[in-house]
Simulated assay, not measured.
Amino acid sequence: MASRIALVTGASTGIGFEAAIALRAAGLTVYAGARRVEKMEPLKRLGITVMALDVTSEESMASAVALVEAAHGRVDVLVNNAGYGSYGSLEEVPLDEGRRQFEVNVMGLARMMQLVIPGMRTAHSGRIINITSIGGKIHEPLGAWYHGTKFAVEGMSDSLRLELQPHGIDVVVIEPSGTNTEWGTIAGEGLLAASGDGPYQQQAHIVAAALASTSGEGHVLSTPARVVARAIVRAATAKRPRTRYPVGRGAWSVLAMRRILPDRAFDAVFWNFYRRLAG
């Protein structure tokens, strides 16, 4: 694996940070990109190259891929991890924020793939690993923008899997449940800022509490980011990777429940669970 080159986006914290470490430990040469370069300083000590990377900037994305390709001639593994969760009622969240959510979670991911695919296609080899979420298969109130992006990435990844298969390129989806990162706290704060005092305030406080339950070891929905990172390594190194890797506490059971239950039954079960989490 020493000769394989991995590029990880959104690597300043959480899943991306742990994925960069785990891929390096597995023997890959790793480039880690994020806007907050200072957060990635510890990665340098592990032999990981860090770079500024903003997935809303064409110049930044093109420069990052060009840097890796200039050094190695290719990107073998792209881990599309950059993203965030924008929560709030559809009525109250400004359209500009909705556009930004899609720009980061979908369009930035798509552009990163556009940039690496030509080199992978020429090499007739490559692996694209898109970090979605069980949120790409299920839904929450006040999460229309976020879940819309994750459903989009799921569908895009499925289409690309068929599209790129003749060119020797695998497309894999990682579907984490709640992870013990800053993601849930930030998403919850944004939710309360958008809808915490208006007509949706009761729902907002319940959902914000559920999002917060992913923060801190031992919480019911909290899975360490390093667990997700291990799934990413498996996806990156398997000779024939699975198309999807649900990972984390409750991921398999929630997805199974979604497949089995009718929509309204799932709505009721899931909402009652969130209400219990909120106390």
Rank of each mutant, 00 (worst) to 15 (best):
L109M: 08
M113K: 01
I48P: 13
T149C: 12
E103C: 03
G155P: 01
S157T: 10
S133A: 11
P94G: 05
Y84C: 02
T179Q: 11
D158F: 00
L160R: 08
R35Q: 12
H139T: 14
E103F: 05
P166K: 03
P118R: 04
Q165H: 13
L95D: 04
L53E: 11
T149L: 03
P42R: 00
F151V: 11
R111C: 00
T49K: 14
S86A: 13
M107R: 10
S63A: 14
A62Y: 02
D170E: 11
V171E: 01
H72C: 03
R127Y: 08
V37S: 06
G143H: 10
E163G: 01
T149M: 06
Q114F: 02
A82H: 05
S125K: 13
M112K: 11
T179F: 10
R121E: 12
V37Y: 02
A71F: 00
T56L: 07
V55R: 09
S159V: 06
R35A: 09
L162Q: 13
E41T: 14
S89L: 05
A70E: 12
V68N: 05
I169E: 09
K150D: 09
N80D: 08
R45M: 06
L67A: 12
P42A: 05
D54N: 14
D96M: 02
S157H: 06
S157P: 09
M112S: 08
V173H: 00
Q114L: 07
G83R: 11
E59I: 03
E103W: 02
A52P: 10
V79R: 02
Y87N: 11
T56Y: 10
N81S: 04
I138K: 00
G155Y: 06
P166M: 01
H167N: 07
M40T: 01
Q101M: 12
V116K: 09
L160F: 12
L67R: 10
V50Q: 10
R45T: 14
R35V: 03
R111F: 14
M107C: 03
P94S: 10
K137G: 01
V104T: 15
Q114K: 13
V55I: 15
A110K: 00
P94Q: 04
F151C: 02
N80M: 04
N180F: 02
V104L: 12
P42M: 02
V65N: 08
L115W: 09
M40R: 05
L67N: 04
A66K: 14
A52G: 13
K39L: 12
I134L: 09
G168T: 01
M40K: 08
S159M: 02
M112F: 11
L95H: 07
N130A: 07
N180D: 15
A64T: 09
D170F: 08
L115N: 07
S60K: 03
